[in-house]
Design a protein around this nucleic acid. Structure first.
Lengths: 225, 225
DNA sequence: CCAAAAGTGTTGACGATACACCCATGT
DNA sequence: ACATGGGTGTATCGTCAACACTTTTGG
């Protein structure tokens, strides 16, 4: 390894954010509409370039905030796309980040004002470059993550109902889950606290609200749904 | 997103390769000794810079080949390290790749002639920059991968014995596995072909050699060890 | 009073683990 | 003949999946 740094080719580095939103039992993805060349009028992930003095993670948060107004989103790096000609205009390396949020926690108007828009995950428009591959790889990861680790909780509202939680899992996994088995498993892991409140927004009977026992939640050994 | 590409900061991009080697029941990692400044005389992962017209994956293979003489190694991307000051001399973004090889499949002399050296995974020297973090993250991934998917097979020699395979799993997982249960599970997945040959290099009795049934191997649904 | 969603237990099947002895061979 | 590693089966336990009815309440 010859560290003649200055003689080495430098590359433009971007971050692309995959913001999955959950709302009304459906999983959606946040995209931005390109009102400029190149690739005008097509849809793309939320992306931008990494600045000089910026950590990669910071760049992802800044880009997301700049393009959608969303702050304080918990994101994880997914993978890096680096084919030499993935962007036909100029070489750009892209590191992808993924997050899952509850749409209703965020201001829909704000998002709209940034020309960003939610699309159902199974009805995405055509995307630029290799962004579809990015979606696929992030979805794959999300499915794995949510099954085998406490994820999908960093993103829940403080209080939530079990039917809501179950629908979230169903939307991500793309399959139905048995109510009783689902509850049984959650109960056995013992990190949910049942509250005395009910949420009646989604049914007449109303569903009990739960919250996390943070302490227990952070020390789960065998999470598995 | 303003695509004024040329005005955007460009960044030096490196790949760092984590080559895990299995030999004699032990897991080792291949490192190179730095005979030059900066950080002379310290050890580092096998790394190099990504060239202009080179896919990221290609770069990883080239760097590995250039620094160790190893070719045709199956590598997978792990994650990208992008703190602004992870390399104190200049900003370098690093994408890590990981592989698992059988040491004896490769020419040890050749590797040595490149000033590369194998170290036991639990006796690594101090590494430069954030390379220790890279090792940790790659080990974590390796453990996950080997449990829940047919990995550790892309890297096996054509023919191998079950005791060898078991020791590989034990070395990676860091725990002992019951012989009978291990064999039972492999058998149930039905992708191993028992040969009529024995390998006597590791015992007097000799152990039967096996090979993969490629067809079945590529269509395993529930791999789980 | 009825529609719509919430809540609640049991059983059977399967997979995971624990466990001990004989076999083949080179020295 | 003995030391060394290779090979084999069974019993038990825990985990996962399948399955149906009662409760609450707004309209």
């Amino acid at each position: 390894m010859n560290r003649a740094y200055k003689e080495v080719q430098q590359i433009t580095v971007a971050v692309d954010c995959l913001i999955f939103g959950f709302n009304d039992g459906k999983l959606e993805l946040l995209l931005v509409h390109r009102g400029f060349e190149p690739e005008r009028d097509r849809w793309s992930l939320i992306g931008g370039f990494v600045l000089n003095e910026e950590d990669l993670d910071e760049a992802a948060h800044r880009v997301l905030s700049d393009l959608t107004g969303l702050d304080d989103v918990y994101m994880e790096q997914v993978r890096t796309f680096g084919k030499a000609h993935r962007d036909p205009y100029e070489r750009v390396l892209s590191v992808t980040y993924s997050a899952l949020v509850l749409k209703k926690d965020y201001n829909d108007e704000l998002v709209k004002s940034y020309q960003a828009e939610w699309f159902p995950i199974d009805g995405l428009p055509e995307l630029i470059f290799d962004h579809k591959d990015m979606v696929d790889s992030a979805m794959q990861r999300l499915r794995r993550r949510i099954k085998s680790g406490p994820v999908g909780f960093n993103l829940l509202p403080k209080k939530f109902t079990l039917p809501q939680l179950q629908k979230l899992y169903e939307a991500i996994l793309g399959e139905e889950i048995d109510k009783r088995n689902f509850r049984k498993k959650l109960n056995s892991m013992d990190f949910l606290v049942k509250l005395d409140e009910k949420d009646k927004s989604e049914s007449k009977k109303g569903a009990y609200l739960y919250e996390l026992d943070e302490e227990k939640y952070n020390h789960i050994k065998n999470f598995n749904i």
